[in-house]
Computed example of a mutant assay.
Amino acid sequence: MARVTIYSTGVCPYCQKAKALLQKWNIPFEEIRIDTDRSKLTEFARVTNGARTVPQILIDGKCIGGFTELTELHMEGGLDKLVEKPGH
């Protein structure tokens, strides 16, 4: 299974939606809150190539974008290719 990381904040509604979708699709993820751990801001900027909005979602270290890109990837069938689901 691919490693999924989501950079988020506690007040971002799109972060909540992205996490809810990942949970609904049974895709485990690691959440990194950049609002409660300021030391992660430098890491966030580096791994997302300077992104300025959250959520930012990484699959195996590759930034796929935010909530919109996550849902588009799922609707186009590309998410299953990136994240091998258990039992498939």
Rank of each mutant, 00 (worst) to 15 (best):
T42H: 00
T42C: 00
T42M: 00
T42Y: 00
E43W: 02
F44Q: 12
A45Q: 15
A45M: 07
A45S: 15
R46D: 13
R46C: 04
R46W: 02
R46I: 11
R46V: 12
V47P: 07
V47I: 10
V47G: 10
V47A: 10
T48W: 02
T48S: 05
T48L: 01
T48F: 02
T48M: 00
N49S: 13
N49Q: 13
N49P: 00
G50P: 06
G50V: 02
A51H: 05
A51D: 04
A51N: 05
A51G: 12
R52F: 10
T53M: 01
T53P: 04
V54M: 00
V54E: 01
V54D: 00
P55K: 07
P55M: 02
Q56L: 01
Q56W: 06
I57R: 08
L58T: 06
L58D: 14
I59W: 08
I59K: 07
D60W: 07
D60K: 07
D60T: 07
D60C: 10
G61N: 09
G61P: 01
K62M: 08
K62R: 14
K62H: 14
K62P: 00
C63N: 15
I64K: 09
I64D: 11
G65Q: 09
G65I: 10
G66I: 12
G66P: 11
G66T: 12
F67P: 01
T68C: 03
T68L: 09
T68F: 11
E69Y: 06
E69C: 04
E69G: 03
E69H: 02
E69M: 01
L70D: 04
T71Q: 06
T71V: 13
T71E: 11
T71R: 08
E72Q: 14
E72L: 13
L73N: 05
L73K: 05
L73R: 04
L73F: 03
L73M: 14
H74R: 14
H74Y: 14
M75A: 15
M75C: 11
M75T: 13
M75R: 15
E76C: 03
E76W: 02
E76T: 13
E76N: 14
G77F: 04
G77S: 09
G77M: 08
G77H: 03
G78I: 10
G78W: 03
G78K: 05
G78E: 13
G78C: 08
G78L: 06
L79E: 10
L79P: 07
D80S: 13
D80V: 06
D80Y: 03
K81M: 08
K81W: 03
K81P: 01
L82E: 12
L82G: 07
L82C: 05
